[in-house]
């Protein structure tokens, strides 16, 4: 019998080891990105990385500001496109459409979340880029184009999680408000949206994270110029594309500079993750 209990202990220990894998991998990733990226940042000074406009890595200029701004711009643009569409869809499908329509459309949109980013990028290249070039001017590869495509990419995330948080509200909220003579829209605006707030915010942060981290689609459509864009029709380079574009061939300090880019990206993402985590915690409690 003792043998059996020892075996159980062993299994428990084994499972504990396995369970630590996720957190260990996270630690491993942070360690590697930081040990590769931080030294060069120390050597040249953080200020130079964060606030200089010049990215000529082969000559020792490592200004990441254009990429930081680039990431901010396309992400903001993506939110401008994706948030209204996603929220509108969530509100319509939960409040105004029949259950049948919702049960058909929601899984459909979630399925579409599986479309790979390269395909989105490709659609951008063959349809949107020429369209923007001909109708709005500029090279077509631009902040504007990238924002639209990214906005569409984060749409399913926002829509699906917002639907879930709206559906999770007790029906009494809605019934109570309607019983008081409010219209459905007033109910949505004044009762349901505030009540589902943290879930919706979590969906926005997740969408934000996806937009900041997106790489392949952005490379294909944003134009990747390292200069600061002067209008939304100018090309731009993001932090992610900066890494992906030059990773293939570089070495030495230049490669370390890409890891420094990774460090900044990593920090931004971790902040977003923690925020999403905290909001969904609040939602749970």
């Amino acid at each position: 019998m003792r043998g059996k209990e020892n075996r159980e202990k062993l299994i428990q220990l084994f499972l504990l080891t396995i369970a630590l894998s996720a957190i260990s991998i996270l630690a491993l990733i942070s360690i590697f990105i930081f040990t590769e990226g931080l030294p060069i940042m120390f050597r040249h000074g953080f200020k130079k990385f964060l606030f200089s406009l010049d990215w000529y890595p082969s000559e020792g200029y490592f200004g990441l500001l254009p990429m930081i701004i680039g990431s901010l711009l396309v992400t903001a643009g993506a939110m401008v496109i994706g948030v209204p569409l996603g929220l509108a869809g969530a509100i319509y499908l939960t409040q105004f459409s029949s259950k049948k329509v919702r049960n058909l459309v929601k899984p459909m949109i979630e399925l579409l979340a599986g479309i790979p980013s390269v395909v989105y990028g490709f659609i951008g290249v063959v349809i949107l880029v020429p369209f923007v070039r001909e109708n709005f001017g500029g090279p077509g590869f631009s902040v504007f184009t990238a924002s639209i495509i990214l906005g569409i990419m984060i749409l399913p995330t926002i829509l699906s999680i917002s639907i879930d948080s709206l559906m999770a509200l007790p029906p009494s909220y809605r019934e109570g408000s309607i019983a008081l003579g409010a219209t459905q829209w007033q109910t949505v605006r004044m009762v349901l949206l505030p009540a589902a707030r943290s879930g919706i915010i979590a969906s926005l942060i997740l969408g934000l994270g996806r937009a900041v981290g997106e790489t392949m689609a952005v490379i294909m459509i944003a134009g990747n110029a390292t200069a600061l864009p002067r209008s939304i029709l100018d090309p731009v380079r993001t932090l992610t594309s900066n890494i992906a574009l030059e990773m293939g061939y570089v070495s030495g300090e230049h490669r370390q500079a890409l890891f420094a880019t990774g460090v900044i990206l990593f920090i931004i993402i971790m902040i977003l993750n923690t925020m999403a985590n905290l909001t969904s915690k609040r939602m749970a409690s």
Binding site: L26, L28, I29, F32, I33, L206, G209, V212, G213, E214, T215, T240, I243, A244, M247, L258, F259, G262, L265, F266, I269, L272, N273, A276
Partner: peptide
């Protein structure tokens, strides 16, 4: 939440 490019880098 970590973007795939970071996984690639790592």
């Amino acid at each position: 939440g970590i973007p795939s490019i970071i996984f690639g880098l790592f």
